[in-house]
């Protein structure tokens, strides 16, 4: 049976209405806000979770892959984060964008992972003024000048992997989930200025590393 519920547009949906919303949601409704889907799932609608998962699975997975640099660990953390979300559904209330909520869970799970397995990785979260990693040589210094887009992408990912954890996290959050500086700050538990600084450092290093490649 297909639920045919028409939701108001997200812009016209008052926040208080969203908080009280528990009706079934039509799957793949492009107008349904993430928060509404999560509330619908809390109310027992499994299709709402499917839609929510479809929207966020790839960006979240890539965020974890970038941060862990290990696909197996990323898969484990990915499953943990969604399991935590499922368990916390009963207490979910709309206090921020769902994306911020989801990546806050992901960030906390990552920190736990770092603490257990690689405490040294935590250092780079505080290493704001660390010297930039030595980027690969600019294109004009490379012996072979044949670079297609695949090679440029690989170089960008390599440069990204060289960034400190916190700076890389800020970059990935912005480019995967479209989060603003404020939302990045909220998701990672730092001040707005810190998040902005991390993002600026990351972009500066990436620009320097991609000089002549873009």
């Amino acid at each position: 049976m297909t639920h045919t519920l028409t939701l108001p547009s997200r812009a016209g949906l008052p926040r208080i209405r969203a908080a009280a919303y528990c009706d079934p949601v039509m799957p793949r409704d492009p107008l349904a806000a993430d928060e509404d889907l999560m509330l619908a799932y809390r109310g027992g609608n499994a299709a709402a979770f499917d839609e929510l998962y479809r929207r966020h699975k790839a960006p979240l997975y890539r965020y974890l892959v970038r941060q862990c640099r290990d696909a197996a660990v990323a898969e484990e953390l990915f499953q943990d984060i969604w399991s935590n979300l499922i368990r916390a559904r009963a207490s979910y209330t709309v206090t921020a964008r769902f994306t911020t909520y989801l990546y806050r869970l992901a960030h906390n799970r990552l920190i736990d992972h770092y603490r257990r397995r690689a405490p040294a990785a935590l250092v780079s979260f505080d290493d704001e003024d660390a010297a930039p990693a030595e980027p690969p040589a600019p294109r004009h210094e490379q012996p072979d000048a044949v670079y297609d887009s695949k090679q440029r992408a690989a170089r960008l990912l390599a440069l990204l992997a060289e960034l400190p954890e916190a700076q890389r996290e800020a970059f990935v959050l912005q480019h995967e989930s479209g989060m603003s500086v404020e939302e990045i700050a909220e998701a990672t538990g730092v001040s707005r200025e810190t998040a902005k600084s991390r993002l600026r450092y990351a972009m500066t290093k990436l620009r320097a590393g991609m000089e002549g490649w873009l």
């Binding site: 887009s149 440029r152 972009m203 873009l214």
Partner: peptide, 18 residues
């Protein structure tokens, strides 16, 4: 440059969960 980096990142980051 930032927009080109963003576009390049979108091209490069294609991983999906299994």
């Amino acid at each position: 440059e930032d927009s080109r980096i963003a576009a390049l990142y979108r091209e490069a980051a294609l991983e999906e969960p299994p």
